[in-house]
Design a protein around this nucleic acid. Structure first.
Length: 945
RNA sequence: GGACGAUUAGCUCAGCGGUAGAGCACUACAUUGACAUUGUAGGGGUCACUGGUUCAAUCCCAGUAUCGUCCACCA
């Protein structure tokens, strides 16, 4: 490898692109399929094909990349499977908007086929920005195997799953109330509905009793005293959605509600509609809420639907798919065609006009909104496809219970349980065009052929099959040889009968709906591995090691993957579920376009480099907490990168280079023994932290080792060696410094891949590196790398230097001023060390020379380090009174420490009950403080004499 | 109504049953010596509050307050 000279600084923009390309072209992201290696796999949460990288992705991708790079370096065979989601609604919306902008005809004016072609066209041209954006973060996914949820393989898998589950009765068609999005005009699932609190009204209407009958209405307080008694000819109902009253089928009261007991069973006149509806009793109404009487609109409210079914009430559908009032026998002509909100106003006004508006309250109400459309969701009575989620949830719940799959952090299990145990049927059909089309074909049932009259009320026969051919085959078998069966091109079922009313010809129409995007996302971990074939990938990489995602898609995605994965493959799709934070802005608000507080990660990458952003996100990714991203912190870590760069320049300047077969354990120099031990400790800690998904701990440990120990101390301590003339020591130190630096690069690589890879190459002056850093071996350094003697020595040295620096600054000694050091009461070891580290002390503690003495010279500042008093004679430079008070303050503070410990040690209970080690530790501390106190007192005495 | 989380330095956040931490900001000093995207030193904390457990609580438990999020309900 050619050695090159390090530039003044790291240029992320140029280097990142170059390095990424280098990795990718070398195939460094691909799994090796080496049977000797332990597999490790992650599937990326597929972002929407329409998506752009936001901060949530940046965090998500960073954490996965940290894991993947870490495991790869640890020698595992790593697969990180990338890909994208076709995102039904989002994509259809984007393309429709684009068609409109370009002045093209809209979707509804073109054929389905043409529209789908447009979407694919859009996807080829504009889709998938996010893949390149993800690359910019340094993500080491194997792009060569990127998948798309609408590609052929996945589409086949989706069809197979649908058919299989249909045959088992786990997918079925049902007519029931569904969450209807009037903007997109499709059904959506429960999880796609967000309840948002809004200002609303609570309208109280009077429904008059049939025939002008009256009753005595009595209200009582809790004690049973009558608070109101009056004759009424009406029942009062309250509603937040007045327009639905046009579809009321009854008024319900609770069986225990005495107020209405006199009129139960009677009828009331539904205002405006001029229909009579009964007053019924049901458990549903809560006597304490509103008037206690509830209007029952079976076709437009989930609770009412249940009541209506119990009492066989009519289900009047009053709106069409756009949320407009629909023409029907019960709909007053005035409202037909009105938008639901216009109708609301009109209904209120009209009821008011006839004197039946009792009162209007203003209050906060929870409004169900479509998460993508942002419009109010309407419960609608429609035919849809459902998955029996309750059934397939069983195994998923069990797998989490027995720990086959675990949440990290574990507290998400509670949320999971709560939801999974109350799971509702999953509506999977969408009235959209972009997506996996439901593989069902409809014909007329043979039973219906005979009774077929008006073309409307016939029973359909459903053929569910993976392909058109299979559907045809099924149909032929069903209808018999005498019937000609075809597939309709324009999705319309029709049939022909002969003179004898026997079926002769039938056109099957395919279901026009597509499947919920999450239905296919749920197959992602195994469908991307080639399922349903029993592929090499399935055997090797499934179940995956971990899925990394944010909590807000536990229900959308994690739950569905678990349910479908277990049901279809018999195995959990992943062993761990790591739930990371949501990235918020500095004020803690969720970033959203509408709030305008979105920080574009790519802007930050441009400004500070991908490594700085990655390191920041990792360092802030403490488990179980949200991240408030602060740009200053990114800047701080960018500076850290620069620091590392400059450390490399220092090594370069001192002719340090990695030495082939260097043995860290063979080091003779104490500083070297010390940094080797520190590297071992850091490596161990970083490894343990990443393994436990404690990214912040890992980042922090690596940071402290690289900056706090290596740059701040080691580099300074070896300077005298480098500038000295002990060639053997120099040679060893050059090699050791390079070795230690290599450990830093390795430990930081998962977090800062670009900078470290660049430095790995740039510092390799002897060409000893046989691979990219990303493919190098992760440091595994045992306890034998830790040298206790060296640790003690360097700890003493650091202590001494720190102490001297501190007192000098405190006493305002100019740093330029070098001074003598006088040691009082120093041990032999200390004196030996003074000799050993004389040069370092000269540089770092501004020492000119040193000697021993029995007492401190006059006009000295003094510090206590271990057993010795260090006196710095600085006549003329210091105010002795200030020094006295400084020492006095220090004495006081130590006294208070001693007092605290003394109290503890005097406490019998503590001495008897606390662990021996803790007691011993306190004794040691106390003794150390006492010794120091003695020395300080002595120092003070020195001044007095 | 249910659940979860938070409350630690000026700010953003770690942490932990025994000795309070980081980044940034702040103060002083230094200097082009790998590094001004710098160095050294320093100031700054009743770890929200009240009880309890414990030899010992910032940490565990209970309660309170404030804030945040999710789920359900609100006819």
């Amino acid at each position: 490898m050619p050695s090159k000279t390090l530039e003044n600084g790291f240029d992320p923009i140029a280097a990142e692109q170059r390095i990424y390309k280098m990795w990718e072209e070398a195939g460094a992201f691909k799994p090796k399929y080496d049977p000797e290696l332990e597999p490790y796999s992650i599937v990326i949460p597929p972002p929407n094909v329409t998506g752009n990288l936001h901060m949530g992705h940046a965090l998500n991708v960073t954490l996965q990349d940290v894991l993947v790079r870490f495991e790869r370096m640890r020698g595992k065979d790593v697969l990180w499977q990338p890909g994208m989601d076709h995102a039904g609604i989002a994509t259809q919306m984007v393309v429709e908007r684009k068609l409109a902008e370009e002045g093209n005809i809209g979707r509804k004016d073109m054929s389905r086929k043409d529209f789908i072609a447009k979407v694919w066209e859009w996807k080829e041209e504009n889709g998938g920005n996010i893949e390149n954006q993800t690359r910019r973060l340094g993500a080491s996914c194997d792009w060569s195997r990127s998948r798309f949820t609408m590609d052929e393989g996945l589409s086949d898998a989706v069809c197979k799953v649908f058919v299989k589950m249909y045959e088992k009765g786990l997918i079925y068609r049902d007519k029931r109330l569904v969450n209807w999005d009037p903007y997109f005009q499709t059904a959506i699932s429960n999880v796609e509905v967000e309840n948002i609190e809004k200002d609303g009204h609570f309208w109280h209407f009077k429904y008059l009793i049939e025939g002008g009958e009256t009753y005595t209405y009595i209200e009582k307080d809790e004690a049973g005293n009558i608070t109101l008694e009056e004759e009424r000819d009406y029942i009062s109902i309250a509603t937040t959605r007045p327009e639905t009253m046009l579809g009321d089928g009854a008024v319900a009261v609770h069986p225990s509600d005495e107020r209405y007991a006199p009129i139960v069973g009677k009828k009331v006149l539904l205002p405006l509609a001029d229909r009579y509806i009964p007053i019924i009793i049901d458990e549903h109404p809560d006597p304490d809420k509103g008037s206690g009487a509830v209007k029952i609109t079976g076709a437009h409210d989930f609770n009412d639907y249940e009541v209506a079914k119990r009492h066989n009430l009519p289900l009047h559908v009053i709106m069409d798919e756009k949320g407009h009032m629909k023409e029907s026998e019960i709909m007053p002509a005035k409202y037909v065609g009105m938008d639901r909100f216009a109708a609301r106003k009109a209904v209120v006004a009209d009821i008011d006009a006839i004197g039946l508006l009792e009162k209007t309250e203003t209050r906060k109400i929870q409004v169900p909104m479509g998460d993508r459309s942002g419009v109010v969701i309407e419960p609608m009575l429609t035919d849809q496809w459902y998955v029996n989620a309750k059934e397939i949830a069983k195994d998923a719940i069990k797998a989490m219970d027995d720990g086959t799959t675990t949440f990290k952090p574990g507290n998400w299990k509670k949320t999971w349980d709560q939801w999974m145990n109350n799971i509702q049927p999953w509506c999977i059909s969408r009235q959209l065009w972009w997506g996996h089309r439901v593989p069902a074909w409809y014909g007329i049932s043979l039973k219906s052929v005979a009774t077929y009259e008006d073309g409307k009320n016939y029973e359909r026969k459903i053929f569910v099959a993976e392909t058109k051919q299979e559907a045809l085959a099924q149909a032929k078998k069903y209808y018999g040889e005498n019937v000609q069966v075809n597939i309709s091109e324009d999705d319309v079922t029709c049939h022909v009968v002969d003179e004898d009313d026997n079926l002769s010809n039938i056109d099957l129409a395919r279901d026009t709906d597509v499947l919920d995007t999450w239905f296919s996302s749920g197959l992602w971990p195994f469908a991307t591995m080639g399922w349903p074939e029993d592929t090499e990938d399935m055997k090797r990489f499934y179940p995956t090691s971990v899925v990394v995602t944010a909590f807000d898609i536990i229900f959308f995605w994690v739950a569905r993957m678990m349910m479908q994965g277990l049901h279809l493959t018999g195995q959990v799709p992943f062993k761990d579920v790591y739930i990371h934070a949501i990235v918020r802005d500095e004020k803690g608000a969720k970033m959203s376009k509408s709030k305008g507080n979105v920080i574009d990660p790519l802007v930050l990458v441009d400004k500070y480099g991908a490594d700085a952003l990655r390191f920041t996100l990792s360092a802030m990714a403490a488990m179980g907490r949200d991240i408030r991203l602060s740009e200053q912190r990114i800047e701080g870590y960018r500076n850290f990168g620069t620091k590392l760069w400059n450390a490399a320049r220092f090594l370069e300047m001192k002719d340090c280079a990695p030495v082939k077969d260097f043995k860290p354990l063979s080091c003779q120099e104490t500083v070297n023994k010390w940094i080797v031990g520190e590297a071992a400790k850091a490596a161990k800690a970083v490894t343990a932290s990443i393994k436990a998904y404690r990214f912040n701990d890992a980042a922090d440990t690596a940071y402290k080792f690289s900056r706090g120990l290596f740059c701040d101390w080691y580099v300074e301590l070896i300077k005298p060696v480098m500038d000295g003339d002990n060639e053997a020591a120099k040679t060893e130190t050059r090699a050791c410094a390079s070795w230690a630096y290599e450990q830093i690069l390795k430990l930081l690589h998962p977090f800062m891949p670009f900078l470290t890879e660049e430095l790995w190459d740039a510092t390799d002056k002897n060409g000893t590196h046989k691979s990219f850093l990303m493919s190098a071996d992760w440091p595994v350094l045992g306890n034998d790398f830790i040298n206790a003697g060296a640790e003690t020595d360097i700890a003493w040295l650091i202590d001494l230097i720190t102490e001297v620096r501190s007192v000098r600054t405190e006493m305002n000694i100019p740093p330029s001023r070098k001074g003598k050091m006088v040691l009082i009461g120093a041990s032999k070891d200390t004196l030996a060390r003074m000799d050993t580290y004389k040069d370092a002390l000269e540089r770092m503690a501004r020492m000119s020379e040193w000697k021993t003495a029995n007492s401190a010279p006059r006009a000295s500042i003094q510090a206590v380090v271990s057993e010795a008093i260090i006196a710095l004679p600085l006549a003329g430079l210091i105010d002795m009174e200030v020094e006295k008070s400084r020492l006095y303050k220090e004495i006081e503070s130590i006294k208070s420490e001693i007092e605290k410990i003394g109290k503890k040690l005097a406490n019998k209970n503590f001495v008897e009950r606390a662990p021996k080690a803790v007691v011993a530790e306190q004794h040691t501390r106390c003794e150390a403080f006492e010794a120091e106190l003695e020395k300080l007192k002595q120092a003070l005495d020195n001044l007095a004499s």
